[in-house]
Amino acid sequence: MKKEEIPQDKGYFGHIAKEVKYAVDSEGKYITGQSTGWKVKEEANEVAWQAFESKINEAKQRVLNGEISPVYYWMEKRMMDLAIVAQYTGLWKWRVKRHFKPKVFEKLSEKRLQKYAEVFEVCVEELKKPF
């Protein structure tokens, strides 16, 4: 990559900080330069975000249909998976999975709900009624 080829497109990270890139100058010597973002990379990030969004929407629909509890929705919304939720809550994976059942979720203790709310960064009210 030549110095003048360091991409200066609009980037998500570029709002916060420019990134350091390595490139060669006109004499072939390596220098560092700053980049605000690269379109190709930003597009790749958008594809990843779309994949997350569609999983979140699917989860939302399943909660609305009464098939699954809000714990599942918040897990997807926070881009977590079963293993991550289990680790943050300190529960076994199978227990978290059980809490995906709407009937089991309704009977959860206040303390348990509080823990989930903390992990998902919402209040208990939002945890129970996400939409």
């Binding site: 990270f13 990134e19 390595y22 690269w38 190709v40 790749a44 594809v47 990843a48």
Partner: peptide, 23 residues
């Protein structure tokens, strides 16, 4: 898209770290 993210994401210096190695 995932391949490109791993290659060009912040931290790589561009070109999947190959430019840093050249330097």
């Amino acid at each position: 898209a995932q391949l490109v993210r791993m290659q060009e994401e912040i931290g790589t210096g561009g070109g999947g770290f190959r430019f840093i190695y050249g330097a």
